[in-house]
Design a protein around this nucleic acid. Structure first.
Lengths: 192, 192
DNA sequence: AATATAAAAATGAATGTTCATTCTTTTTTT
DNA sequence: AAAAAAAGAATGAACATTCATTTTTATATT
């Protein structure tokens, strides 16, 4: 267990409070004062860690996206077959979204909202490069449909976000067997 | 051409301004004063048409969702085969999202954000009933995978939202042939 | 048809609150 | 005892909503 410095603990509390409150009320409906209170810190202290409110949310977004993709590619290696690679990545993504619902919800809101600055949004996209590369290989080897990466993403990865949002809104509960079904649907829609 | 009353014209201008500005900046970052200005109306006038800012956005959401589903089911009839019915509905939805990007964007933001009150959100869901009924028939006739409606939606309908959002963020341009590809991927992922 | 009058619709300015950010002082660490 | 970190209160701007008037519309009367 790595010992965190006091300021690192504080910073994480801020990041965590931001995610929780933005999930509940949205970015602009969440006052700095509330984030400070939840992180048990003075409002002024936030400005020692971040330039301003916008910088705070941008950084929280980029860091969360990075944590997400790191998790997603954890058990993937480039010398796997395309099908195996995709399965491994897909299932890690599913795993992340189910185990870290809060973070997944936050990312979903960021992706569909003008809340994050364009630069940070772009940075978030770049972390997905390994998946894009895998798809390219899949197209070259004629294993994956020769369609745009956006279509591939829309049909194989993005649906999970929708399911998580639905789950959080309380209308739908994801069960064990759903994951396998969802994976099959994902692969069916992109395989050649 | 139906002649609209003066107040109906004004109301529509308000609805339209709301959608435009919420798309650009998000709900809480959009002041009533700006909506009023864009609709060429005094801020006070908004309160003659809507109870308050929250009521405004709730109503705009419900009405836009209704317009969307009316459009979606326009050319569908219950005596079509399951496959034909699905194709017809799917393509109308695609059509709506491409031709009415602004409205589609707005709905996507509403779906992923705590901006809309729970009641209005629920009301929006109810309009999709005909599609749910069609899926039930498809499952009974063993044409569609026996999986939850949420999974079916996630894999066949929702991906379009993602594509539209990407298109609007300027990273991706939907082309004619994409639609057919996307439809195939949608059907592939839900058919038995 | 023209005018007068009442009702309705719309307005711009005022109000009070909320909030991001800054400033000065205090506490903690080195 | 100096430097760094944190705090709480103060500041000023932005905003949703309301209020007192003005403008427009509809109706009635000549």
């Amino acid at each position: 267990m790595i010992k965190l410095s006091k300021s690192e603990i504080k910073r994480r509390a801020l990041v965590d409070a931001t995610i929780t409150l933005v999930n509940n009320s949205g970015f602009h409906a969440t006052p700095i004062s509330k984030i400070a209170k939840m992180a048990d810190v003075s409002p002024a202290t936030i400005y020692l860690y971040f330039e301003n409110k916008q910088d705070l949310v941008n950084k929280v977004f980029v860091e969360t996206k990075q944590a997400f993709t790191t998790y997603a590619f954890e058990s993937y290696s480039e010398n796997m077959s395309v099908e195996q690679g995709f399965e491994v990545i897909w299932k890690r993504i599913a795993d992340f979204k189910i185990k870290q619902v809060k973070n997944a919800m936050f990312l979903a809101q960021c992706d569909n909202t003008p809340m994050i600055d364009e630069d940070s949004r772009q940075e978030g996209v770049r972390y997905l490069q390994p998946l894009v590369d895998l798809w390219q290989r899949g197209k070259d080897e004629q294993i994956i449909k020769p369609i745009s990466d956006y279509l591939l993403y829309a049909y194989s990865i993005n649906p999970l976000s929708f399911l998580i949002v639905m789950q959080e809104q309380g209308t739908f509960k994801i069960k064990e067997n759903h994951i396998e079904e969802a994976y099959q649907a994902a692969w069916d829609s992109i395989k050649l």
